[in-house]
Amino acid sequence: MKPAPFEYVTAETTEAAVAALERFEGNARCLAGGQSLVPLLNMRLLRPAAVIDLNRLSGLDHVTVDDGRVRVGALVRYSTLETSALVAERIPLLARAVPFVGDRQIRNRGTLGGALCHADPAGEMALAAVTLGASLRAVGPDGVREVPADDFFQGPYTTALAPAEVLTEVAFLDGRGAVAAVAEHARRHGDFAIVAIAAAGLPGPGDSWRWVRIGLGGVAPRPLYAARASALLAGTRLEPKAVRAAAEACLADADPASDIRASAEYRRHLIPVFVERVLAELRERRRGGTR
């Protein structure tokens, strides 16, 4: 179980990475954290002509706030997201989602951009990005473009990136004041989610919520922003009736499949259970002031 031969290329700038991708005409893979890519190389399930190492790219490991947006470089590692005070304050959902990812070693290497480009339908980073309506910046031979998260994920392990494009940055709306929660069921600690439900909301007057956004992971070929459920919850107090309606709307959006971890039937069963759970946690966190 050793990788097939490939050319290892280090890119020191985004432009160099794009040029290298062009040179190998779609038969190259970018290496960021490598925590999903390298096992596939080892098993020879992927056999690219070249592996382009992005880890020496400078300037893609930032977390900054500007103009109502929080910009996170594609090479920011999970462990940074986990400990960043800025992330905890401005993108609390991302902070809540990170501990569900893999294990300590994986979080030390894996990157936000790598996770998004891997596009695992059960991936927590992709789930957070669609739930929060993040915008993804891609740099390619024709320049820079912004792709809404909802358009970025096209199916299992498939993204909207063109063969020579590199994901450089993810912009989240500044979520200061928002409360966030993630509820997830997995076969074992840190394993891929069978069902992952993410929710973020901004407290409004009284017990009401100005807005709530819900996302669904592991229950469709790609992570879903549950638009109807989110709309149903805006302005409510997350009272039982509203929660039930949202759970039903989520279920209607889902299209789960069966795999080694769970059957489609069980995933469907879990969706409303976990929507209720995540919204209960949201209320709980607001009350407890733990965001």
Binding site: Y8, T10, G34, Q35, V38, N42, D53, D103, Q105
Partner: peptide, 26 residues
Amino acid sequence: EQGVCGACTVLLDGQVVKSCLMLAPQ
């Protein structure tokens, strides 16, 4: 060599990583 068992764990600049998931030139 699948990044699961952690038997290959080493410290890279002080942080634990799985050395089966890194290429030597990295």
